[in-house]
Protein backbone atom coordinates (compact mmCIF):
# COMPACT_ATOMS: atom_id res chain seq x y z
CA UNK A 1 0.00 0.00 0.00
CA UNK A 2 2.61 2.53 1.03
CA UNK A 3 4.66 1.55 -1.96
CA UNK A 4 1.75 2.21 -4.26
CA UNK A 5 1.10 5.58 -2.66
CA UNK A 6 4.80 6.33 -2.75
CA UNK A 7 4.69 6.23 -6.50
CA UNK A 8 2.42 9.29 -6.64
CA UNK A 9 4.78 11.74 -5.14
CA UNK A 10 7.25 14.38 -6.10
CA UNK A 11 10.38 13.43 -4.20
CA UNK A 12 13.65 15.15 -3.50
CA UNK A 13 16.14 12.47 -2.60
CA UNK A 14 19.31 13.61 -0.97
CA UNK A 15 19.51 16.79 -3.03
CA UNK A 16 22.59 18.94 -2.78
CA UNK A 17 23.52 22.03 -4.76
CA UNK A 18 26.16 24.70 -5.15
CA UNK A 19 26.64 27.57 -7.60
CA UNK A 20 30.19 27.90 -6.45
CA UNK A 21 32.32 24.83 -5.86
CA UNK A 22 33.62 26.13 -2.56
CA UNK A 23 30.23 26.69 -1.09
CA UNK A 24 27.34 24.23 -0.83
CA UNK A 25 24.05 26.11 -0.74
CA UNK A 26 22.38 23.01 0.72
CA UNK A 27 22.93 19.28 0.97
CA UNK A 28 20.98 16.15 1.84
CA UNK A 29 17.57 17.68 1.27
CA UNK A 30 14.76 15.17 1.57
CA UNK A 31 11.29 16.32 0.75
CA UNK A 32 8.21 14.72 -0.73
CA UNK A 33 4.91 16.08 -1.90
CA UNK A 34 1.92 13.89 -2.50
CA UNK A 35 -0.55 14.61 -5.24
CA UNK A 36 -3.43 16.73 -4.04
CA UNK A 37 -1.41 18.00 -1.12
CA UNK A 38 -0.36 21.61 -0.52
CA UNK A 39 2.88 22.04 1.37
CA UNK A 40 3.91 25.47 2.56
CA UNK A 41 7.56 26.32 2.95
CA UNK A 42 9.22 29.40 4.38
CA UNK A 43 12.81 30.36 5.06
CA UNK A 44 15.22 33.24 5.20
CA UNK A 45 15.87 35.37 2.17
CA UNK A 46 18.79 34.05 0.15
CA UNK A 47 18.63 30.62 1.80
CA UNK A 48 18.04 28.77 -1.45
CA UNK A 49 14.28 28.29 -1.79
CA UNK A 50 14.10 29.50 -5.37
CA UNK A 51 17.11 27.40 -6.24
CA UNK A 52 15.44 24.28 -4.84
CA UNK A 53 12.27 25.22 -6.75
CA UNK A 54 14.24 25.36 -9.99
CA UNK A 55 15.78 21.97 -9.29
CA UNK A 56 12.40 20.41 -8.57
CA UNK A 57 10.98 21.82 -11.80
CA UNK A 58 13.98 20.60 -13.80
CA UNK A 59 15.38 24.04 -14.69
CA UNK A 60 18.57 23.21 -12.80
CA UNK A 61 20.26 19.87 -12.25
CA UNK A 62 21.14 19.07 -8.69
CA UNK A 63 24.83 18.76 -7.91
CA UNK A 64 23.97 15.55 -6.08
CA UNK A 65 20.88 13.53 -5.38
CA UNK A 66 17.82 13.10 -7.58
CA UNK A 67 14.27 14.27 -8.12
CA UNK A 68 11.65 11.62 -8.74
CA UNK A 69 8.26 12.37 -10.25
CA UNK A 70 5.78 9.64 -9.40
CA UNK A 71 8.67 7.28 -8.91
CA UNK A 72 10.47 8.11 -12.17
CA UNK A 73 13.49 10.18 -13.00
CA UNK A 74 12.81 13.13 -15.28
CA UNK A 75 12.13 11.97 -18.79
CA UNK A 76 12.38 14.66 -21.38
CA UNK A 77 8.85 14.42 -22.62
CA UNK A 78 7.18 17.46 -24.13
CA UNK A 79 5.53 18.97 -21.11
CA UNK A 80 7.20 18.56 -17.79
CA UNK A 81 4.71 17.40 -15.16
CA UNK A 82 6.22 19.74 -12.57
CA UNK A 83 5.42 23.38 -13.33
CA UNK A 84 7.23 26.27 -11.71
CA UNK A 85 5.46 29.59 -11.21
CA UNK A 86 8.25 32.11 -10.84
CA UNK A 87 8.68 34.64 -8.10
CA UNK A 88 9.01 37.48 -10.60
CA UNK A 89 6.57 37.28 -13.51
CA UNK A 90 8.52 39.89 -15.46
CA UNK A 91 11.36 37.39 -15.73
CA UNK A 92 9.16 34.57 -16.88
CA UNK A 93 7.34 36.10 -19.83
CA UNK A 94 8.89 37.06 -23.12
CA UNK A 95 8.61 40.88 -23.25
CA UNK A 96 8.14 40.88 -27.02
CA UNK A 97 5.09 38.66 -26.99
CA UNK A 98 1.51 39.67 -26.92
CA UNK A 99 -0.03 37.88 -23.99
CA UNK A 100 -2.49 36.02 -26.19
CA UNK A 101 0.54 34.07 -27.39
CA UNK A 102 0.92 32.52 -23.96
CA UNK A 103 -2.36 30.76 -24.46
CA UNK A 104 -1.59 29.90 -28.07
CA UNK A 105 1.61 28.27 -26.83
CA UNK A 106 -0.31 26.29 -24.27
CA UNK A 107 -2.96 25.06 -26.70
CA UNK A 108 -4.46 22.47 -24.45
CA UNK A 109 -4.95 24.90 -21.65
CA UNK A 110 -8.31 24.68 -20.01
CA UNK A 111 -10.84 27.20 -21.26
CA UNK A 112 -12.03 28.21 -17.80
CA UNK A 113 -8.65 28.87 -16.23
CA UNK A 114 -8.24 32.47 -17.43
CA UNK A 115 -11.62 33.54 -16.13
CA UNK A 116 -11.15 31.69 -12.84
CA UNK A 117 -7.98 33.71 -12.39
CA UNK A 118 -9.67 36.97 -13.33
CA UNK A 119 -7.79 37.47 -16.58
CA UNK A 120 -9.59 40.06 -18.67
CA UNK A 121 -10.01 39.65 -22.42
CA UNK A 122 -8.69 43.15 -23.05
CA UNK A 123 -5.29 42.24 -21.60
CA UNK A 124 -4.65 39.65 -24.29
CA UNK A 125 -3.54 42.01 -27.00
CA UNK A 126 -1.02 43.76 -24.75
CA UNK A 127 2.62 43.05 -24.05
CA UNK A 128 4.12 42.43 -20.63
CA UNK A 129 5.11 46.04 -19.94
CA UNK A 130 1.52 47.13 -20.57
CA UNK A 131 0.23 45.18 -17.59
CA UNK A 132 0.58 45.67 -13.85
CA UNK A 133 2.68 43.28 -11.76
CA UNK A 134 -0.34 41.44 -10.44
CA UNK A 135 -2.03 41.19 -13.82
CA UNK A 136 1.08 39.66 -15.36
CA UNK A 137 1.41 37.15 -12.56
CA UNK A 138 -2.04 35.79 -13.37
CA UNK A 139 -0.80 34.70 -16.79
CA UNK A 140 2.09 32.83 -15.21
CA UNK A 141 -0.30 31.05 -12.89
CA UNK A 142 -2.70 30.20 -15.74
CA UNK A 143 0.10 28.78 -17.86
CA UNK A 144 1.06 26.34 -15.11
CA UNK A 145 -2.32 24.58 -15.31
CA UNK A 146 -1.58 22.43 -18.30
CA UNK A 147 -3.64 19.22 -18.49
CA UNK A 148 -0.43 17.22 -17.91
CA UNK A 149 0.55 19.16 -14.81
CA UNK A 150 0.85 16.93 -11.77
CA UNK A 151 2.80 19.21 -9.44
CA UNK A 152 3.15 22.96 -9.11
CA UNK A 153 5.94 24.81 -7.38
CA UNK A 154 4.55 28.23 -6.48
CA UNK A 155 7.39 30.59 -5.61
CA UNK A 156 5.98 33.55 -3.70
CA UNK A 157 3.24 33.86 -6.29
CA UNK A 158 0.73 36.13 -4.61
CA UNK A 159 2.94 38.75 -3.01
CA UNK A 160 2.28 40.82 -6.16
CA UNK A 161 -1.42 40.98 -5.30
CA UNK A 162 -3.50 43.08 -2.97
CA UNK A 163 -4.99 41.13 -0.07
CA UNK A 164 -8.41 40.70 -1.68
CA UNK A 165 -6.99 39.41 -4.95
CA UNK A 166 -4.59 37.20 -3.02
CA UNK A 167 -7.45 35.61 -1.13
CA UNK A 168 -9.52 35.23 -4.33
CA UNK A 169 -6.66 33.61 -6.23
CA UNK A 170 -5.75 31.19 -3.44
CA UNK A 171 -9.36 30.16 -2.89
CA UNK A 172 -9.55 29.40 -6.61
CA UNK A 173 -6.19 27.64 -6.70
CA UNK A 174 -6.98 25.43 -3.75
CA UNK A 175 -10.19 24.32 -5.46
CA UNK A 176 -8.40 23.68 -8.75
CA UNK A 177 -5.53 21.65 -7.35
CA UNK A 178 -7.81 19.55 -5.17
CA UNK A 179 -10.10 18.86 -8.14
CA UNK A 180 -7.20 17.90 -10.35
CA UNK A 181 -5.22 16.14 -7.69
CA UNK A 182 -2.19 18.35 -8.19
CA UNK A 183 0.49 18.52 -5.52
CA UNK A 184 1.71 22.01 -4.61
CA UNK A 185 4.81 23.36 -2.94
CA UNK A 186 4.00 26.94 -1.93
CA UNK A 187 6.99 29.10 -1.04
CA UNK A 188 6.23 32.24 0.94
CA UNK A 189 7.58 34.40 3.72
CA UNK A 190 4.09 35.03 4.88
CA UNK A 191 3.48 32.40 7.52
CA UNK A 192 -0.10 33.40 8.20
CA UNK A 193 -0.80 32.94 4.49
CA UNK A 194 0.79 29.48 4.57
CA UNK A 195 -1.34 28.60 7.56
CA UNK A 196 -4.44 29.39 5.51
CA UNK A 197 -3.53 27.44 2.41
CA UNK A 198 -1.29 24.54 3.40
CA UNK A 199 -1.94 21.04 4.63
CA UNK A 200 1.53 21.01 6.14
CA UNK A 201 4.22 23.67 6.71
CA UNK A 202 7.99 23.23 6.53
CA UNK A 203 10.72 25.56 7.73
CA UNK A 204 13.34 25.50 4.98
CA UNK A 205 16.09 26.46 7.39
CA UNK A 206 15.27 23.45 9.52
CA UNK A 207 15.20 21.26 6.45
CA UNK A 208 18.68 22.53 5.65
CA UNK A 209 19.76 22.39 9.29
CA UNK A 210 18.63 18.80 9.72
CA UNK A 211 20.83 17.81 6.83
CA UNK A 212 23.82 19.83 8.02
CA UNK A 213 23.92 17.73 11.16
CA UNK A 214 24.24 14.64 9.06
CA UNK A 215 27.12 15.99 6.90
Amino acid sequence: MTKWLGAFMLECKNIGFYYNRSNWLFRNIHLSIERGEIIGIYGKSGSGKTTLAKIMANYLSPTEGEVLVDGEKSNHSEVYPVQLIWQHPEQAINPKWKLSKIFEEAKELDQDIPSILGIKEEWLNRRAHELSGGELQRFCIARAFHPDTRYIIADEITSMFDAITQAQIWHALIRLVKERNIGVLAISHHISLLERISDRIIDFNQLKGASEKSF
Partner: peptide, 20 residues
Protein backbone atom coordinates in the same frame (compact mmCIF):
# COMPACT_ATOMS: atom_id res chain seq x y z
CA UNK B 1 -12.51 44.65 2.86
CA UNK B 2 -8.77 44.82 2.22
CA UNK B 3 -8.14 44.52 5.93
CA UNK B 4 -10.47 41.56 6.30
CA UNK B 5 -8.83 39.79 3.37
CA UNK B 6 -5.45 39.62 5.10
CA UNK B 7 -4.57 36.03 5.96
CA UNK B 8 -3.99 37.01 9.59
CA UNK B 9 -7.48 38.51 9.74
CA UNK B 10 -10.27 36.74 7.89
CA UNK B 11 -8.75 35.77 4.52
CA UNK B 12 -12.13 36.84 3.16
CA UNK B 13 -12.34 37.30 -0.58
CA UNK B 14 -15.21 39.57 -1.54
CA UNK B 15 -16.58 38.80 -5.01
CA UNK B 16 -15.74 40.34 -8.33
CA UNK B 17 -13.00 42.79 -9.30
CA UNK B 18 -12.54 46.51 -9.73
CA UNK B 19 -14.11 48.01 -12.85
CA UNK B 20 -11.98 47.77 -15.96
Amino acid sequence: ALWNALPQNGFIAIDSTQPS
